[in-house]
Design a protein around this nucleic acid. Structure first.
Length: 426
RNA sequence: GGAGGGGUGGCCGAGUGGACGAAGGCGGCGGUCUUGAAAACCGCUGUGCCGCAAGGCACCGGGGGUUCGAAUCCCUCCCCCUCCGCCA
């Protein structure tokens, strides 16, 4: 959610942001509704003030034994008028809120302009892309041959777009989770959190997954949502709180399962572990002071990169363009791993800063100075990393001609010293 | 799931339908005293919205109702605590 003051003070900034994003939105309606809202509000409030005055007078009269009946009648009449304007105001306010919630964040100036993925700017690549003396397989094929990923069992248990990890596959994913959490807590200074995997409506509004993206979420019969990412619980850690300046930056990391309905997604990108309804992810999240935002985001990206580097996977960093960026962020960097089996770069991590867009919705503030007025914090988060995709990248990059997969050095201590995953005996 | 008890400012806690945005305490800030600190004493200390301002409006878990007027009465939902039941 944007600052409502922007609507009347800097409408052109918003108009420009919408244009850069290629986002359809009736800004003029919002401006009109905002104006209307203020006019009605002033009317309602001045009438209320009048009524309060009369009520006080009635109290005084009664105490003195006077006749309060005429004033009571006056107050009742006024009450009816108030009720009527209040109803009008309520409707206007509702529309105003609705429109505000559908307004996307304003991209930072340095975000590259562009319409699609094609316009994202690759900033740099790291790690060597391995040359294979054989045709590398896709991870889904490797995983099935090794007996560590089973898509048909998952289909029977749950449905299409699910996976069941088995044996060394399960151990590998668990190793990844532990390795990531240990690294972020012990070396990068994050506090570990294990939150609920379901969230209520308010929390989903907080991160702006609602109201615009409800179709992406799984909803339970009693109105809770399965979290699409740990961003939801983490960003809502300090709902309605006013933090002290010294507490910032406040850094959290969490492993959670993530659930996405993936309505409408289909095609090549959906093979294997790339796009499933349930996956595992270790998330990084920070609450920061506005002036810390850029620096802290850079550190957060580096923290995610550290994992990819430790796993010795080739990757590159992309600066998402205005058109490819999500609704909520004002800047996003993707870390894309190279997948030799598919000959593709795919997102292992997406790191975004939101300014006060989410903090406003969650009502998370801080006090810059002990006596100063509270201000909204800035929020940011990034995957550190998506475990399923990282496992897929490991399988594809570490595969051997004889069908085995070597375990990256960094993970061996987490897998009882296992050096490679071998296929089951025929 | 059943029975009961609760939700008040940063925290603890009082609150009779009108003088309550709310006693008192703690904490925080400023001051007096002190070589310095502590103690003591004095003062200040919630948030949002509208307004150029003066000022006004709203908020005592959420929503609704009764009333001229609600923190206070009624309904409903949510959350917390205690006991019982069930359960990994």
């Amino acid at each position: 959610m944007l600052d409502r003051r922007l609507i009347r003070e800097e409408p052109e900034t918003i108009r420009e942001a919408l244009r850069k994003r290629g986002y359809e939105f009736d800004l003029d309606e919002l401006i009109g509704v905002e104006q209307q809202r203020r006019e009605l509000l002033e009317m309602v409030e001045s009438r209320r003030a009048q009524r309060n005055e009369i009520s006080e007078e009635i109290g005084r009269l009664i105490k003195e034994g006077g006749d309060a009946e005429p004033l009571k009648a006056q107050s009742t009449a006024l009450g009816e008028a108030i009720a009527q304007s209040e109803e009008e105001l309520r409707q206007v306010e509702e529309r105003f809120e609705q429109l505000m919630l559908e307004l996307p964040n304003i991209p930072l100036d340095e975000v590259p302009a562009g319409a699609t993925e094609e316009d994202n700017v690759v900033m740099y690549s790291q790690g060597e892309i391995r040359r294979f003396e054989f045709t590398p397989l896709g991870h889904w094929e490797l995983g099935v041959r090794l007996g560590i990923l089973d898509f048909s069992v998952a289909a029977n248990q749950a449905g299409a777009r699910f996976v069941t990890d088995i044996g060394a596959g399960s151990a590998l994913e668990r190793a990844l989770i532990n390795f990531m959490l240990d690294t972020h807590t012990r070396q990068h200074g994050y506090t570990e959190v294990l939150p609920p995997f379901l969230a209520n409506e308010r929390s989903c509004y907080g991160t702006a997954n609602l109201p615009k993206f409800e179709e992406d979420l799984f909803k339970t019969t009693d109105g809770l949502y399965l979290i699409p990412t740990a961003e939801v619980p983490l960003t809502n850690m300090q709902q309605d709180e006013i933090l002290a300046a010294e507490e910032l930056p406040k850094c959290y990391t969490a492993y959670t399962a993530c659930f996405r309905s993936e309505a409408g997604a289909a095609g090549k990108e959906t093979r294997g572990l790339i796009r499933v309804h349930q996956f595992h992810k270790v998330e990084l999240m920070k609450f920061v002071k506005p002036e810390q935002a850029d620096e802290e985001l850079e550190k957060l990206v580096n923290n995610a990169e550290a994992i990819i580097q430790a796993l010795e996977l080739p990757y590159r960093r992309a600066h998402l363009c205005t058109g490819d960026m999500g609704f909520q962020p004002r800047q996003t960097f993707d870390l894309e791993g190279y997948f030799p089996g598919m000959d593709r770069w795919l997102e292992l991590s997406s790191c975004s800063q939101y300014g006060d867009f989410q903090a406003r919705r969650c009502n998370t503030r801080y006090r810059p100075e002990p006596e100063a007025k509270p201000q909204f914090v800035h929020t940011m988060n990034g995957s550190g990393l998506a475990c399923g995709r990282t496992m897929a990248a490991i399988l594809e990059n570490y595969q051997q001609e004889n069908g085995t997969v070597v375990i990256p050095d960094a993970l061996r201590p987490y897998m009882g010293g296992l050096v490679e995953i071998t296929p089951p005996l025929p």
